[in-house]
Design a protein around this nucleic acid. Structure first.
Lengths: 161, 161
DNA sequence: CCATCTCAGTTCGTTTGTCGAACTGAACGG
DNA sequence: CCGTTCAGTTCGACAAACGAACTGAGATGG
């Protein structure tokens, strides 16, 4: 049978939780910026060099320098020095474990784009080590898959049962 | 046994896919903005009114008006007219199905924040209709759970096997 | 030794967007 | 009428983004 459409989610006059007590808000503070997200995309593609990112994204060099510095400071990227044989040592920006932790969010975003934006091709996939595509699933704490997104709501209170 | 740490993901000189052929990039174009994401948070909390959002977020009224208009235009929110008994009719902004489709991405972001940002409380949860918390899982196309994020990589080519 | 190439940043003037406080205007109640 | 409520708009000060040109360090070659 089709999932029961929840009734009217009753409106609320104000949000139940201030921004500084909200994990989601703190995450938005870090990644709530188009260039930052696009740089993460570059890093996921294995692009590590300043000039390559600049050319791929068409980002102003000054902005890229600022973003990279901030992302290193925040621990999303690490700046190591890479040396091509017979070439000068150059900085290489790599995803840290913390940066890689954003993969599920990026995967979910990509899926959303494919189902709800749909225009244009989608030539980039996120794959596991052996080339198998990965995707996100929304599940309840009890393990059941969530089938009806309209029932989802944000509520005050730390994760309980 | 512990997951095998993948070797060095070989660096790449340039991204394999241009921005306009990338679903992720198109999504970033829509939600790659801190205010937009915070407004989605408000909507998920059930906040529908201009003044309430403005007060919750501390966003400049001019910016809020512009963002709401854009989000309605993009189909993330719908602007219906709500009338309190004995009060004037006022616009109410509600998540559309398209907007709700972003819940998995927001859930993933929140999870990331809790595991990698960690400072401060996290008083907001995403719950199903009966109050059970929801979260995202990263799985492979073959259904297997992904245990090692370091193995994930972005690759050219539409989703295959 | 000097010129040249490569590539990661910086500098700087212009343009665009954000900020925030004040204002507008439409609907209701008294 | 007049005051209140609330969704926007207006506007000046400020900050950030933009983009083109420049700097500087290390490697190569004549």
């Amino acid at each position: 049978m089709p999932p029961v459409r929840s009734p009217a989610p009753d409106p609320v006059t104000r949000a139940p939780v201030p921004l500084d007590a909200c994990a989601l808000a703190r995450a938005i503070d870090v990644i709530g910026d188009a260039w930052t997200l696009l740089i993460l995309r570059e890093a996921l593609c294995g692009v590590e060099r300043f000039d390559a990112m600049q050319a791929d994204l068409g980002i102003p060099r000054s902005v890229l320098a600022a973003r990279l510095a901030r992302m290193v400071e925040q621990g999303l990227l690490e700046r190591r020095t890479y040396r091509d044989p017979g070439r000068r040592g150059r900085p290489a920006y790599r995803l840290t474990e913390k940066g890689r932790g954003l993969v599920p969010a990026l995967a979910a975003l990509r899926q959303w784009s494919r189902t709800h934006l749909a225009h244009g091709p989608s030539l980039l996939s996120l794959v596991d080590h052996d080339g198998v595509c990965v995707e996100t699933r929304l599940v309840r704490a009890d393990g059941q898959a969530v089938e009806d997104l309209t029932a989802i709501r944000a509520r005050a209170g730390p994760p309980v049962g």
